Structure formats: C-alpha cells, structure tokens
Amino acid sequence: MKEEILELDEFLTLRKKIPLLDARSEGEFLQSHIPGAINVPILNDAERQSVGTIYKQEGSDNAVLKGFELVGPRFHSIIKKALELFPDKKILVYCWRGGMRSEIMSWLLSLSGFKVYRLKGGYKAYRTKTFVTVRQNHKYLVLGGKTGVGKTRLLKRLREREEHIIDLEGLANHKGSSFGGIGMESQPSVEQFENLIAEELFQIPSEDIIWIENESRRIGKVILPKELYDTLSNAPMIEIERSKDQRIELIIDEYGALPKEELLSAVNRLRKKLGGLNTSQCIQAIENNQPTIWITLLLYYYDKAYEFDLEKNHTSQRIRFDMSTSLLETEIDQLLEFKTNFQWKI
C-alpha cells in the first residue's frame, strides 16, 4: 500500500484519529517528541551513532548499507510490534528530517498492509513550528499573588468555565519552589516543555485572551523562553490577596500530607536562604507534625522573594483583588467581569 507524504498541518490534524509513530532512537524520543507519539526505533542510540560516524567518514552509500545491515534482522520484530500497537493498520510516521528512517519504516509497514502517512520535514518541521509558536505575542492575563493564594485552583476553575488557560506548572510537572517537585512525575526536557506549551496554544485562536499564572523564568529544571517570559512580565497582572491564615490553610491542604523525608530535604535545600535558626525550627516542626509553624516560617522567606521578583521583573499594570472573604465561584465571576471590561492597549 503506497504511503502519503503530508505537510505538517495536515499531519497534525490527522493525529486526532490516527496513531503516531516516532521512528527515531530512544534517546531522541526521550529528549523531545510530538506529544502522543509512540516510539518504535528503526535504529537505537548506539546504532544511530555508528551510522552517523560512517556517514561522516565514508559517505552516504556506506551509511545506508550499514543502516540496513543493522535494522534488517529486526524487520520481523518491528512489524510484529507495530501490529500489536496499531491493529487498525493506519499510522502516521516521522523521524528527524523525514528522511531515511521514516522512509524505511514506511516501506516496511506498507509491505505489511499498513496505510502510512509520513511527515514531510519530520520532527524538525514540527519543532520549528513549536519554537515559533511559544515566542509569538498573545493576550495574556496573568494571575499573581504570594505563595498560597490559590492561583492554580483559580486557573482550573476558569478552565471549567471554558476559559482559555495555560497551566505552566502542570506542563512542567513542578510547582516552582524547592517543594515543587514532591509527588510529581519527572519533568520534561526544556524542548519538550516548549512543545507542550505550543500544543496548548495551537488550540487557542490568536486573538483570544489566555489566563496564565505568574511564574519565575525557571520552574524546577525547565526554563521559560525569554520571549514568552518577557511577554508575561509586561502583561496585565491580577494580584490575588488573601489573609496569611487562609494561605497557610491552602498550603496545608496541598503540602501538609507529603512525606516527611521529602519535606525535610526541601527545607535543607533552602538552608542558606532561610538561615540556620529558621531551618532548624522548620525541621523540628515538620518532625513534630506542626505544619502551621513550618509553613509560617517559610512564608517569611517566600514573601520576600516574591516582592523582590515582582519589583524587578513585572513591569506591567498590577490590579489587586482582595479575595479574603469571597467564595470560589464569586472569585471566578470577579475575574471574568474584569476580563470583559479590561481595555487592551493596542
């Protein structure tokens, strides 16, 4: 069955109903990939390196021969795995540039009765699109506020009200502090993080408003693109205010039941910033199951850091919303009313 070669936009549209196969090596896939893809390597990492070396030293013909020598004995296992994974025998395929590896995969699966759609330009074409997309200007409304004001909770409720949101912490698998990785899955690479942000933006019309949480440029080990960070720093920010008692209660709900060992490790990572006495008091409070005490001590540090970062980096209009006495649905209504009435500068 003959393959079809598709431009990127058509390829991405078809993936909504046809599964996606990444023919690159396992290391390339782990570094970054098109979300939703399943990795079935034509060449593994070591084999890819070997073929690349031959290409540089001996030319493309010998490299192609070596590639077939390495992958030929595995044709049977590749076909068998593809049949297990994709029993409907329809598949979208890509490699790095849409060249030899995806061509071989397409040829092999086509011989086995698959209908194959191959991406022109490969992952490189996709990555070019995501790179550009996350650096474009959009209309962002930034939710700010000190640690514990419930920004993520508001974002999730806005999504339930069919608003456009981007949850950077959710995409990063990290909540942005020394404690932010506890209980979370491993973080994506910086490149994959950008891909995930772009995937969200693909679904949002360019003229629509997007709600997003105020973040430092670094979220755990991932980093926001400078262009996106600068855009958010200059976007209007709604600064949520709550009483300290409310903030402590929200933080207890989120962090209070986490494993003590991990909480203690997080506190020790902050030792230089907290100082010896505060660190010791935090450790004692965690060991004695006194979350109000250690959270209060930590908020002193985090509040200072927040104010410093805000004054240094967030140069846009700041609108304060006191939400100390309101219910969640009332808070959402307030935010939506603000969005409706806000006058955007052109």
Rank of each mutant, 00 (worst) to 15 (best):
D167Q: 07
R247F: 01
E241S: 15
V222F: 01
R242V: 12
T130Y: 00
A235L: 08
I209F: 13
Q192M: 08
K226V: 15
E239C: 09
E169Y: 03
P236H: 03
E213Y: 05
F131S: 10
Y140R: 05
G220I: 04
A198F: 03
R157E: 12
R157S: 07
G150L: 10
V149A: 08
A235S: 09
I223P: 01
L201M: 05
I165T: 04
S206K: 11
Q203D: 08
S233I: 12
A172L: 09
R217W: 07
I166H: 02
L201Q: 04
I219A: 04
N195C: 02
Y140D: 14
A235R: 05
I212K: 00
I238S: 03
E199C: 04
I204F: 02
V142M: 04
S178K: 09
W211T: 12
L141N: 06
R218E: 12
Q203K: 09
R242G: 12
G180H: 03
N137W: 12
L143H: 03
I166N: 00
E160Q: 11
Y140V: 13
D208I: 07
Q187Y: 13
Q246L: 13
R161C: 15
E185T: 13
P188C: 06
E191Q: 05
V134R: 02
V132Q: 07
L196S: 01
D167E: 15
G150W: 11
Q246S: 09
T130F: 01
N214P: 11
G170N: 15
D167I: 10
T130L: 03
E160V: 11
I204H: 01
R217T: 12
L196W: 05
E227Q: 15
E199T: 05
L143T: 05
G144I: 06
R247M: 01
S216D: 08
F179L: 06
L201G: 00
V222A: 00
K226E: 09
I212L: 01
N234T: 13
N214H: 11
A235D: 08
V132T: 14
P188E: 06
I238V: 02
G183H: 07
K226D: 12
S177F: 05
I238Y: 04
E194M: 05
T133K: 01
E207G: 14
H164T: 15
L224W: 00
N195E: 00
V190K: 02
L250F: 14
L171S: 08
K146P: 09
S189H: 02
M184E: 15
E227C: 07
K129P: 11
M184Y: 15
D230F: 14
E191D: 08
F131V: 14
E191L: 00
G176N: 14
Y140I: 11
N137T: 01
W211H: 02
Y229F: 13
G220H: 04
R135W: 01
Q192I: 02
